[in-house]
Simulated assay, not measured.
Amino acid sequence: MFKISDMMEKEVVNVNNGKKLGFINDIEFDMGEGRIKSLIIVNEGSKSYLLSRGEACAVSWNNIIKIGHDMILVKIDQQVDFNDIDI
């Protein structure tokens, strides 16, 4: 079991290309099913990354391969578009 606050400290990495995507900024829940729908990732290259404002993308819960001690591995085949979500 883990806390959401613990997940937000883990770096998200795409296993297909080894690219570091950033850190979790938010989590999207499906209240009807009681499940996590996706993770909202803030681009670590964004100028205002430390303020948690900037470009973000949603990564579906189904794309998560492994949640480790210090990072979350995801498998995303297409290029990640950090303009998906305005936070």
Rank of each mutant, 00 (worst) to 15 (best):
I87N: 08
A58S: 14
V13P: 02
V42E: 09
G54M: 02
V80Q: 02
Y49H: 11
R53A: 09
M31N: 00
I67W: 15
L73F: 13
G18T: 03
N63E: 15
D6K: 10
S5Q: 08
V13N: 04
S46L: 01
N16I: 04
D70N: 13
D81R: 04
K66Q: 15
M31A: 00
L51S: 12
M71N: 13
E44V: 13
E9W: 00
G54S: 07
S48A: 12
F2P: 09
I85K: 10
M1G: 15
H69T: 13
N14F: 06
I64V: 15
I64A: 05
I67V: 15
V42Y: 11
I76E: 06
L50Q: 10
N63F: 05
D70Q: 10
S60E: 09
F82H: 03
G18V: 00
I65M: 14
L39M: 11
V13S: 02
R35Y: 09
R35Q: 12
D26L: 01
Q78S: 00
N14A: 05
S52D: 10
I67C: 13
I4F: 04
M7E: 04
K37G: 00
I40Y: 02
A58R: 15
F82M: 05
D84F: 09
S52F: 09
D26P: 01
R35L: 15
H69F: 11
G34C: 08
N25D: 15
S38M: 01
G54Q: 02
N14P: 04
E33W: 03
E28K: 12
E9R: 09
F2W: 12
G68W: 01
G54W: 02
G34I: 09
N63H: 12
I76C: 05
V12W: 03
V15A: 06
E33I: 00
F23D: 06
S52E: 13
K3I: 00
S52N: 13
D84V: 10
G68A: 15
N16E: 07
E28H: 09
F82V: 06
I40M: 10
V13E: 05
D6A: 11
V74Q: 01
M8G: 00
M1K: 14
E33C: 04
S60C: 09
I41T: 05
I4R: 03
S38D: 07
H69L: 13
M31Y: 00
V80M: 05
V74H: 01
M8W: 00
I27T: 05
G54T: 05
G45I: 05
S48D: 14
G68R: 10
K10Q: 07
I85M: 12
K19S: 11
F29S: 07
Q79A: 11
D81C: 06
K66D: 14
K75T: 10
F82P: 02
I41K: 05
M1Q: 12
R53Q: 12
G45L: 09
V80A: 06
M8I: 03
R53E: 06
F2L: 15
D84N: 10
K47R: 13
V13Y: 05
E28N: 12
N16K: 07
G54R: 01
I36H: 04
V12K: 02
K37Q: 06
D30E: 07
D30W: 08
S38H: 04
V15M: 10
I64P: 02
R53Y: 10
I40W: 00
G34E: 08
L39D: 02
S5E: 11
K37E: 08
